[in-house]
């Protein structure tokens, strides 16, 4: 039973991410900046299949989106404490912005 559960877990993970070693990274929105591990970041290198969890740590809304061909998405408006995830399935450069706050830019290089 345990073996079967493990197999189902790995098969599901592989199907969802295409990468057994895919990881989830947390990028906070704090002080109207993109922050990882407590430091502001302008660029981030990740691997195909990785997931970024965008977490709003500001006491106001953010609205994160990308128009890049590599990964187009729009997370909509979300308040403090809420997070949304994006899986990056293609290699390339992804420019990410906040629709509300003009100074927020993050370039994600998916390798």
């Amino acid at each position: 039973m345990a073996k079967r559960s493990t197999m189902v877990f790995f098969t599901t993970t592989l199907a969802m991410t295409g990468n057994l070693w895919a990881q989830e990274l947390v990028v906070d929105q704090k002080n109207r900046s993109f922050v990882k591990d407590g430091a502001e970041i302008k660029t981030l290198d990740i691997k195909v299949g990785d997931v970024i969890r965008f977490k709003n740590e500001d006491p106001f809304f953010h609205s994160i989106f990308s128009e890049s061909e590599t990964a187009k998405f729009d997370l909509g408006n979300y308040p403090k404490g809420q997070s949304k995830t994006v899986t990056f399935e293609k290699a390339g450069k992804v420019d990410i912005e906040c629709a509300i706050h003009s100074k927020m830019h993050l370039t994600v290089n998916v390798k």
Binding site: R53, P59, F60, L75, Y78, P79, K80, Q82, K84, T85
Partner: peptide, 13 residues
């Protein structure tokens, strides 16, 4: 997991 939007809440902290 971001599947459902949480209720919008007023913020000022």
């Amino acid at each position: 997991f971001g599947l459902v939007a949480a209720p919008m809440v007023a913020q000022a902290d």
